[in-house]
Each structure stands twice: as structure tokens, then as C-alpha cells.
Amino acid sequence: IRCIGVSNRDFVEGMSGGTWVDVVLEHGGCVTVMAQDKPTVDIELVTTTVSNMAEVRSYCYEASISDMASDSRCPTQGEAYLDKQSDTQYVCKRTLVDRGWGNGCGLFGKGSLVTCAKFTCSKKMTGKSIQPENLEYRIMLSVHGSQHSGMIVNDTGYETDENRAKVEVTPNSPRAEATLGGFGSLGLDCEPRTGLDFSDLYYLTMNNKHWLVHKEWFHDIPLPWHAGADTGTPHWNNKEALVEFKDAHAKRQTVVVLGSQEGAVHTALAGALEAEMDGAKGKLFSGHLKCRLKMDKLRLKGVSYSLCTAAFTFTKVPAETLHGTVTVEVQYAGTDGPCKIPVQMAVDMQTLTPVGRLITANPVITESTENSKMMLELDPPFGDSYIVIGVGDKKITHHWHRSGSTIGKAFEATVRGAKRMAVLGDTAWDFGSVGGVFNSLGKGIHQIFGAAFKSLFGGMSWFSQILIGTLLVWLGLNTKNGSISLTCLALGGVMIFLSTAVSA
């Protein structure tokens, strides 16, 4: 259960009878995928790494000078000259100064003066180019299975845990398959586009800190620079940016070097996208990844198990997540596992009318040892309800109150669905055939309105939902006002479609 501690969480529900669903994975976010007769899966884009970055340009932001020398000439005696002028490691300046009897010249006039100092770069920052084909995306998957609280967001041991898996995709191999043991396998067909235009970005490294910066900004930095990788004795261009020549006297000129420019660069980098280094690879934390999940090989585990009949206890007080759902960790005293956990939410304890829904599909106890633990997640209705676990006299209950409203949740879900469709863009549509167009249209309606429909009408039977949709269509056909007619027709059509397409 990876997503319960992530604030940016998206719930995606598969269409009834569908074998695939489109998701948008982004750094700092987590996606929970639910479908009829399929286990619930949490998917998170953990890291995006980039390798084989080529150094484009380096800037010196802290330097020192040494070996200063000057040469001067009297008027009419030609130009002052130093051998160091031809050495690229030196920074030199030529000027004219007033000369006369007082400073060793027989004539009054302008004399030539040249001053040089050896330039040494102490600290530099480097910009590297990123090729999209060198990106690698690491995705962690977790099935809502027989897990306890100690396994949440624990990325170790996934090789031997059938509840978890790690997959890596690249532009050259965008397809992967996550093996989930008894739950089958989940196929991923990803489109490795981060949403960032790397043709316009460089990877900047300064003092063990890293950013993504725009090329134009990078090339306009007014500091000494050299092109390409460091060859040991780089040729620094624009050395004068960190060196200041003071007022010249008759035979000498003082040279000083400016202080470190790291603070000024940090100020200019305010708002830039931060990154990290992992050995020789860069780690990015921006952008998104679009994936199509193929769920035809994914299956529920323990459908044929019998119900657990022994007593359950709450190991922890049920807690609310950031998303309005409830996490419950229970301990089973029996030894008759594997068995299914009898769990439901009810409005009252007399009729036990089921409300809400299970995020953890078909929760089971897989071990036959005593005191096995299991964590599950529920989506309670707004208002008061009861969490009921167990059967008969051994069942345990917990009162729950959820604040908020169904309308607010439906609106929030619609906005999130619209954002998801905007990110998917043209990849969500198939114009290759008439059937493809209608299929894409259905998927689009489901992406945007599916979660809201589930919130508003999830407790009704599909037949009642179709009746309401048919009534809206009838009202649309018999209303003389054009805008009201079109609105009723659209709402009725969407409702009829979703009542037959969205899983219960």
C-alpha cells in the first residue's frame, strides 16, 4: 500500500470489461488503480535517471590570480610587451599612462603600459546536455494484498515479495511487465516523455548541487567559461569578468580578483528545477510519464477462499488518510488461513446495510499462523458509518465519521480527471477507425466523469442509474429551450454510458 502517505494521489477506475487503462505517473504523486474483478494496485514513479550526459560548457565562479607582471614604455618608444601576453592562462590589459620627467621619461606624453596576471579557477559549475534516449524511469508497484503497516513504502525485498514489484522503462524499451506472483502480471506500455523539453534544458552542477536550467539563461551567464570537458589546462574565455584592473600608474597597475560568485548564482537559480546525482547518473524529480496498463493477466487472489471465522482485533486505531479513506490494521487469532476477511461498512448496526467501498479488493489472510496481521483500506461514505470486521458474535466494529460532501468530492474528481486527460493529450485517442474513435470517446468520458459518477451514484443499482439517464434524455427531447435540451441530452447520455461502463 504505497499511496496512503502521498498527498498527491489519483484514483483511476477501469471500465467494466476493459483490459487496459491509461494513467499519468508523476514525481511526488501516486496512482491507485481499481477495476472490477482485479486486485487494487498502487503505482508510483520513484526516480527518473539520466546517463551519458555530455559537458557543454563550464563557468568559473571563484578564481585566484598570481605571478603579476607589468612592462611600460616612454612616449615614442613603441608598445610595451610581455611574453605572458601569448599565454592563455594569463589575463592581460594594455593601456596608456601619462609619462614625463617625473617618472623617468625625457618627453612628456602618453606611454604604453601592459599588465598580466595568471588566472586560476578555484571553483566552477558545469552544464551538461541531456539526450531523451538516455532517460530511465523506475516504477514501483504494490498490490493491496496481505501486507501490514511495516511494509508500507518499503522498497527492500521486492524481489521475493509477490505484493510488490519494480520495473524500469526507457525510450528504447518502453514496454515492461511486472510479475506479482499469485496476482498474475501487469503489463506497462509507457510513452517516455517527461513533459520537459530537454532540447531547451541543461543539467547544471555547482558545488555538489544540481538544477535543470534553460539553455539561453545558461549561455548568457557573465562569467569566465570554457567549452567542452575539462582537459586539465582549460582555456578560459572572458577571464576579465572576475578580474579587475585598478587605476594605472606610470610603471605598474594593481590587479585584484573578485570574490566568489556562488551567492549571486544561487539567487539567479531561484525557482529552477532541482535535481540530484546518483553516482555518474543524474536524478530528476520533475515531469511525468504516461503509461497504458494492460490488466488482462491480472487476477484476484483468494476468490475461492472461505470466510475467516475466528476473532479479529484492531492492532491500531483506524486512521484517516490524506485522501479521506480509512486504513485499518487487524490481527487474526485463527489458524484456518488462508481465508477471506469479512469486512464491510454499514450505516447502522441493526440492518448492516453496506455503504462505501473497499479500496483493498478481496482482502485475505494468507498465513495459517496465529496472530497474522493484515492492513486494508476503505472508502467510507460522508457522515457517520460503522466499520464491521468478522462474522457472528466475534465481529468487531468501529464508529467512523467522514466530513465533507459527495458533491465536493465529485467536483474534485472531475477536475482531476480533466487534468489527466489534458496530460494524456492525443495519445488517449485513436482515429484509425470508426470503432477506435468511439472507443476513445468512451475512454475520455470515463477518465473525466467516472470518479464523479461513482461518488454521486455508486450506491444505486445499474438499472436505477439507466432509468435516471433515460429520464434526462426524455426531458431533453421534450424541452423547447435549446440549451436546457442539449444539457439534459448530454447528461442523460453520459449517465447511461457510465452506468453500463463503470464497474460497481
Score class of each variant (00 low, 15 high):
429 W>C: 09
287 G>D: 08
108 F>A: 03
112 S>A: 13
113 L>I: 14
482 G>L: 14
43 I>T: 11
458 G>H: 10
355 V>A: 15
176 A>R: 02
318 P>C: 04
453 F>S: 11
467 L>I: 14
71 D>V: 08
414 T>C: 10
208 N>C: 00
198 F>H: 03
212 L>H: 07
22 D>T: 02
157 G>A: 14
357 R>P: 02
431 F>M: 13
69 A>Y: 06
249 H>G: 05
212 L>I: 13
295 M>V: 11
427 T>G: 13
129 S>K: 04
309 T>N: 15
502 V>A: 14
399 H>E: 00
1 I>M: 15
387 I>M: 11
115 T>L: 02
145 G>P: 03
127 G>I: 03
419 K>S: 03
262 E>S: 06
109 G>H: 08
13 E>C: 08
315 T>D: 08
43 I>C: 05
336 D>A: 13
420 R>A: 06
278 D>E: 13
46 V>P: 00
57 R>Q: 05
424 L>W: 09
427 T>H: 02
126 T>V: 14
257 V>Q: 04
374 M>P: 00
430 D>Q: 08
99 R>E: 08
130 I>H: 05
129 S>A: 15
159 E>T: 08
270 A>S: 09
290 K>E: 09
499 S>F: 12
444 G>W: 12
416 R>D: 04
458 G>S: 14
429 W>V: 04
352 L>S: 15
264 A>P: 04
226 H>K: 00
360 T>R: 01
206 M>L: 14
47 T>L: 13
485 S>V: 01
433 S>D: 05
170 T>H: 07
186 L>G: 02
36 Q>P: 12
164 R>P: 00
160 T>N: 00
457 F>D: 12
114 V>L: 15
206 M>Y: 03
126 T>D: 14
9 R>C: 10
71 D>P: 00
399 H>P: 14
330 V>P: 05
232 G>D: 10
160 T>K: 14
412 E>M: 12
367 E>N: 01
27 H>C: 03
61 Y>K: 06
478 N>S: 11
364 V>W: 03
421 M>T: 10
79 E>A: 11
95 T>M: 11
218 F>M: 11
224 P>G: 05
347 V>I: 13
40 T>P: 01
308 C>Q: 08
6 V>E: 06
98 D>G: 12
398 H>F: 05
427 T>F: 12
361 A>K: 07
451 A>L: 00
183 F>R: 05
414 T>V: 05
242 L>E: 06
249 H>M: 12
9 R>D: 09
188 L>S: 02
231 T>Q: 09
40 T>Q: 06
457 F>W: 12
60 C>Y: 13
158 Y>M: 02
56 V>I: 15
13 E>M: 09
476 G>M: 11
113 L>P: 00
106 G>R: 01
145 G>T: 05
245 F>T: 04
303 V>R: 06
489 L>S: 06
350 Q>D: 03
15 M>I: 13
495 M>E: 13
400 W>H: 12
105 C>L: 02
84 K>P: 13
46 V>D: 12
47 T>R: 13
176 A>L: 03
503 S>F: 11
487 T>E: 05
491 L>W: 12
498 L>Y: 11
262 E>K: 13
275 A>M: 05
436 G>H: 02
73 R>N: 08
254 T>L: 12
64 S>L: 14
149 S>D: 13
158 Y>Q: 01
324 G>A: 12
488 C>K: 03
133 E>A: 05
190 C>T: 05
424 L>F: 12
473 V>C: 12
158 Y>G: 12
24 V>I: 15
212 L>Q: 07
5 G>E: 12
151 M>A: 11
397 T>M: 13
92 C>Y: 13
286 S>D: 01
346 A>R: 11
300 L>R: 01
332 Y>I: 04
429 W>I: 07
27 H>I: 15
288 H>R: 13
445 I>H: 07
72 S>N: 13
329 E>L: 02
220 D>W: 12
254 T>H: 10
63 A>Q: 09
193 R>W: 10
192 P>Y: 04
134 N>T: 05
379 D>V: 08
469 G>P: 06
335 T>C: 13
205 T>A: 13
353 T>A: 15
359 I>T: 12
450 G>V: 07
